[in-house]
Write a protein that binds this DNA or RNA. Structure first.
Length: 708
DNA sequence: AAGCAATAG
DNA sequence: GGTTCTATTGCTT
């Protein structure tokens, strides 16, 4: 995960003070206002959907996508008949004899569709991060702020489900998430109407929580997590491995410490955890277990490596090896050629057969690609393959002594260190391929320029259904600011499907389940002894135990890092000068800084791409379908409903019925002007590996590369 | 820069 | 448990 998060605190702090300013209130953190709004999108059985779009006749049949002898995914018709992901083909056919099998080893179509989804999302907001082929994160914090200025809060309504929460009322604690839920619905609708794909979305304040909540209602539904339900969501996880970021190895190590459940890890003394994992990882995984994650949404951009691989029962001669590698190289170089960039590193990976641990043993050797062959790859010359094959054989011999018998079960070839075409030190393109010291990282910490989402110029990239074979795709992709657009007329008028033989997608059915559990009080039963060992002196465990569980978790987490101790107990506690960049939650508990942000906020003067529903004709129907769960006794709380001397955070912690009662009392009192603001200004970047060359500074130059 | 480990879908 | 075919990030040398 990310280690370079020095900027988080700045960001959080300034949003926090923004809030306080608009609130006009003096004290308290009012944390819920300062939170990011993160969306997570997860396409329903992605490979199967792609195949059903390619061949609509499959829609009514049980369909399984087969790679080798495995069903990697299947459609919902097949699932009804007991077929599951990662089932063996024999088991699946046994369960479902009519199962239609489609070979899925060639990922080309999936990859293409996958990037179309990412591109579509990026056309609305540049902060999109891919996770695999079928998931995307989006940081819509800024978009939400912008909309908040334009929309009347009383018109606001949540779209879709809310995690374990019965009321759909929008109060001032959750306006941003409500707007996020509307945006999520619009994005899902856009994905459906332009690409024909359905999927789920999660709306929350972090990647972790958005991802965890998005699968609550499947398929093709969305769920919002309100902050107070965080603890419940985390406790609902059936084991530590369900926490994203904790994988097999970590789970095993934790198991050795006696930690099995999420709660176990939440309550485990941090020093002991540090001993096992080191400070950074220890804090990270414990924070994760508490539902705390401040990792930024890091925009995807073009892939950093391209690889092709094949697995097989047995390869044991050099001739077979060469033949297989050549096969792989042919398709890989073709892909590389289409990409347009030039690879500078080549890697060969093998997996040897072993009786035990048949999976773990991957070995690789890599080497630089000589410029002359690199150029041949990019320009599509057929001479590239033999040259790379020669390289491969050399690398192979570094791993395998061919005088001895060997048994391989996998070969992989990979290009990395991808650089824009024609790049050389003197060339203009080196700006995009090598570190551009003045660029800022496009993450939520480094806020992007205000014009980034503005309706813009024509770009091939906004026309997701047109695939130009000759496009040097990633070159045109790089100038995010100029080519990743808001929805424009081109987009709306695109025919939704590429093939005329593809049917219009069926109407979205939103089987919104209105029966949600009522939330129980979340007073926790932390063992007294554990508690005492973890609470700083001066904190009464009895009082602590009375706090809502999620507050407890945040506090526990903040107690555990030295600098947050400082934040919570004053500057006398420690003298650390480096605030823990990873622990933004602790900031929620410290006194706010004076605000400075309204001054910074004069963007948007040009931005008028507000109502997505206006630019996307079909959005409205979704929203209507989704609004089935209303009829609250009370209209949603707005800021004007809550007196200034009432801490909205505290208010949000009150039982729903008490909230309701108070709201009715307060209604009709003095309206407070709501002018949400935010900070602008980019922080100067420190490290910037990933998005080097993608930053805003390059835009002037990048536009020269834009195809007309 | 190279190689591997861990994580993810 | 991880099967398949990718892809990313971080650690270590």
């Amino acid at each position: 995960m990310d280690t370079d998060e020095e900027e988080n605190n700045d960001w959080d702090r300034s949003l926090e003070s923004d809030m306080l300013e608009t609130e006009g209130s003096s004290t308290d953190r009012a944390t819920s206002k300062s939170q990011r709004v993160i969306l997570h999108f997860d396409l329903d059985c992605f490979y199967a959907q792609v195949e059903m779009i390619r061949n609509p006749a499959l829609r009514t049949k049980p369909l399984g996508i087969q790679q080798k002898y495995i069903i990697v995914t299947c459609n919902y018709v097949a699932r009804e008949q007991g077929v599951n992901k990662l089932m063996s083909v024999t088991d699946a056919v046994e369960k479902c004899p009519q199962l239609v099998l489609v070979k899925g080893e060639d990922l080309t179509h999936y990859r293409e569709m996958s990037y179309k989804v990412t591109e579509l999302l990026m056309s609305y907001c540049p902060l999109v991060e891919r996770l695999g082929f079928d998931e995307n994160f989006m940081d819509v914090t800024e978009m939400v702020e912008r909309r908040l200025k334009e929309t009347c809060i009383s018109d606001l309504s949540f779209n879709g489900h809310i995690y374990k929460h019965e009321s759909m009322a929008v109060d001032e604690e959750n306006v941003r998430l409500a707007v996020g839920s509307v945006i999520a619905a619009e994005m899902r609708q856009a994905i459906f109407s332009t690409l024909g794909l359905t999927g789920c979305a999660g709306i929350a304040s972090s990647k972790l929580l958005a991802k965890l909540v998005s699968g609550t209602f499947k398929p093709n539904q969305q769920t919002t997590l309100l902050p107070y339900s965080t603890a419940e969501l985390m406790s609902s996880l059936t084991g530590l491995i369900k926490v994203p970021g904790i994988g097999y190895k970590t789970r095993e190590k934790l198991k050795a410490l006696g930690l099995i459940s999420v709660r176990d890890l939440q309550l485990y003394p941090l020093p002991d955890l540090v001993r096992e994992f080191g400070e950074v990882t220890a804090k990270k995984i414990q924070n994760l277990s508490c539902g705390i994650d401040d990792s930024p949404v890091t925009p995807a951009g073009p892939p950093q490596s391209l690889s092709d691989e094949d697995s097989f029962k047995r390869i044991s001669t050099l001739e077979e090896v060469q033949k297989k590698i050549e096969e792989l190289l042919i398709s890989l170089t073709e892909r590389m050629h289409k990409d347009g960039r030039q690879p500078h590193t080549f890697r060969l990976t093998i997996r040897r057969y072993t009786v035990t641990n048949r999976w773990f043993s991957r070995e690789s050797r890599q080497c630089p690609i000589p410029n002359h062959t690199g150029l041949k790859i990019t320009c599509g010359s057929s001479e590239a393959v033999p040259q790379l094959l020669a390289l491969s054989v050399k690398l192979f011999h570094k791993m395998v002594d061919t005088r001895e018998p060997f048994h391989l079960t996998l070969l992989n070839v990979c290009f990395s260190n991808l650089q824009a075409k024609g790049s050389s030190k003197s060339s203009i393109t080196s700006f995009f391929t090598q570190k551009c010291p003045t660029t800022t990282r496009m993450t939520s910490q480094h806020q992007v320029e205000p014009d980034i989402c503005e309706p813009a110029v024509n770009s091939q990239f906004t026309q997701p259904d047109v695939l130009h074979k000759e496009d040097k795709t990633w070159i045109s992709m790089k100038p995010i600011k100029h080519t990743w657009l808001s929805p424009t007329r081109e987009l709306q008028t695109q025919p939704p499907f590429i093939n005329s033989n593809s049917p219009r997608p069926p109407v979205l059915e939103h089987s919104q389940d209105t029966s949600m559990n009522t939330t129980e009080s979340c007073l926790s039963s932390v063992p007294e002894k554990t508690l005492r060992s973890r609470l700083p002196p001066g904190v009464d465990p009895e009082v602590f135990k009375l706090l809502p569980e999620h507050i407890q978790m945040e506090l526990i987490s903040s107690f555990q890092s030295e600098d947050s101790t400082q934040l919570n107990y004053g500057p006398t506690a420690t003298s650390s000068e480096d605030a823990d960049p990873a622990d933004h939650f602790t900031l929620a508990f410290k006194q706010p800084e004076p605000c400075e942000s309204a001054l910074n906020y004069n963007r948007n003067s040009l931005s008028h791409n507000h109502e997505l529903s206006k630019t996307l004709p079909s959005t409205r129907s979704t929203m209507e379908l989704n609004s089935g769960q209303d009829s609250h006794d009370i209209p949603p709380a707005t800021q004007s409903d809550v007196p200034a001397n009432v801490d909205p955070y505290v208010f949000s912690q009150l039982p729903a019925d008490v909230q309701r009662e108070l709201l009715t009392e307060w209604r009709g009192q003095k309206p407070v002007l709501k002018i949400p603001s935010k900070h602008s200004h980019k922080t100067s970047n420190t490290r910037d590996k990933k998005s080097a060359g993608k930053g805003s500074q390059c835009n002037n130059i990048l536009k020269y590369f834009k195809p007309n």
